[in-house]
């Protein structure tokens, strides 16, 4: 993330987009810290991990069939 993503104005706009205006008003430091944590990139996966072959989630349409 660029340093802009830590600016109070950027965080305020992002927090408001997420419906956190009240939290921002009451707990501005907590929201700022939370945004920095949430936006921090994930660590690199183990060597050899492919982004293309591993589905993030599995969807099973049969699960929604009525049970006997």
């Amino acid at each position: 993330m660029s340093s802009d993503s830590k600016s109070p104005d950027f965080i305020r706009r992002l927090a408001e987009q997420h419906g956190l205006a009240r939290a921002l008003e009451l707990f501005p430091d907590a929201v700022q810290t939370a945004a920095e944590r949430g936006l921090k990139p994930l660590g690199a996966p183990p060597a050899g991990t492919s982004r293309l072959i591993q589905p993030a989630t599995q969807f099973d349409p049969a699960r929604f069939e009525p049970r006997e």
């Binding site: 956190l20 907590a30 939370a34 945004a35 936006l39 660590g43 183990p46 982004r51 591993q54 993030a56």
Partner: peptide, 24 residues
């Protein structure tokens, strides 16, 4: 509150990558 708030700011792609990382 401090533990819950960061979840609001996690981009969808980060969550998906975390699921991929979990599988690895």
């Amino acid at each position: 509150r401090n533990r819950l708030l960061p979840g609001a700011f996690i981009p969808a792609v980060k969550y998906i990558k975390a699921q991929q990382l979990r599988a690895a």
